[in-house]
Design a protein around this nucleic acid. Sequence first.
DNA 1: TAACAGGAGTCTG
DNA 2: CAGACTCCTGTTA
Length: 534
Amino acid sequence: MVLLRKTDMEDTMPQTVPSAGFTPPCDYTNFAENFDLSLLPGGEQVDYTQSPPPEKPQPKIYTTFYPNSPEADFRPDFQTLLVPDAEKTPAVFLEVPPILSPNSYRQSSEANFYPSSPELSLYTPSPNSLYSQSPVDDFFQYVKKEAYPPSPYSYRVKEENFLSPCGFSSPTSPATSYSSLSSPEQINTQQSENTDVLELLENTVLDKQIKQESTVDFGNLLSTFQDSESLRRLLEDDFKEAQPQTVPSKPKDHQLLREVLRDTSFQKKYNIKPIDFGFIGDIKMEEPDENAQRDLMREKIEPVLSLAIEQMRKDVDTTCAALGISPDPTQWSAADVLSWLQWTSRQFGLTEPVPDHWDMNGPSLAALSEEDFTRRAPQGGMILHAQLEIWKAAYSDEDLSMKWQPETTSSNASSGDMSDEDDDEASSSQTDPSRPTTSRSGGSHIHLWQFLKELLASPQTYGSCIRWLDRTKGIFKIEDSVKVARLWGKRKNRPAMNYDKLSRSIRQYYKKGIMKKTERSQRLVYQFCHPYNL
DNA sequence: TAACAGGAGTCTG
DNA sequence: CAGACTCCTGTTA
């Protein structure tokens, strides 16, 4: 989420009506009143309740952070995510990475995308960065490990008449209609009715906490839920961080948050302010037991996850209706794939996808790794992949909110040999390629070559049984033929699968030009043919 | 001995 | 009907 400055918004923004299915505007009338100014570095008091001096021209700025800008190189901020607290506290304050979401680009009533985001640049981790699984994950790792050093991430502020999805009033959704829902009971009622999560957030959180000077882009909130594991980890960390034993005299002294806010220049410049995170400390004080804290945390977050997923599905449905494609990516034809790619690329201001690079149907697309995406679209593959993951998550048969398990076990996915127990554990993962899934993503229709690429795309999990020898040439080696065969049999629900049969299937690929043996044939070493090596 | 190659019939979505 | 599964014989490292 992005904190946005709302400056003369209603006066200067005529095109302020989000299209159906997207987020309505909201009113933030009490933001600064509840803002914990002590969170600012050095206890510096910045009165955000005051309007800027009249002699100081207010720029028409709605600050959205675009990663890795070639122009700007300040990194003042984390996008701010507000999560409604179903009980007594107004909000949870999270720092989340600048994930881009289509929700940042609302459709106008004429179905034109506004803005067109021409300068959108891409998140690109530096060669030295520990780019792991997702930008979300990576960013969290970065924040927590390195606090706030110069980073491969850079941001810029897009200074233009950017319309926040909820930073303006709309004749169809008057802001005044969002002022009444704030009690926990009301919140729960809204949740039980599957109310639009964005509306809920706006009603329950912003209405209490945000002054008119600020607006919030809740669209990015949804993007964060593509990686609920990261969200869970972050919350857990924040809970730990707020432990009284960590800062005995100041239970609310959220060190991470303070570090994040150390650079106040940006906040001052754009009148952005954080929100009190105090309830975590309160909870902790009341619930010293760790499990109780986790339960409480789960209780607070799970409804939000459910609502976020619900919202994701709504947005997916809207897009499906516009494109005339199935919400299930695995049902897409090659034409559907191209249609979706073009649509998503346009939404994010990416270069048009090269059709030759995407000559595949939905299941094939769904099986591609992020690396595959990036190879096919160096300038936008990561975003496209992330968006597809959102689609897959949104329409997975598995309720993502059920993944919200406050486990205490430290899952070590990068461990070497995997026992059968490891297999079972992996099978519970939504992204487990071996899972005999009924999920719409992946599914049992997957081809063997796709399955192998899935395994290869998760070296941290499957590196012990299959790995790339030469990624660029598509050469890989099966290190554990028994295990790979077992995984394949699991996926295909073929308990009798063995490597002999699996390799027979691989050999069928020879004449189809999908795979081949390497020039100098080596045992258990195969090579993907072009373009399957992409 | 395990991996490899490939023919051929069957199954499945 | 395509793709995968299964079974098979024979070869190779």
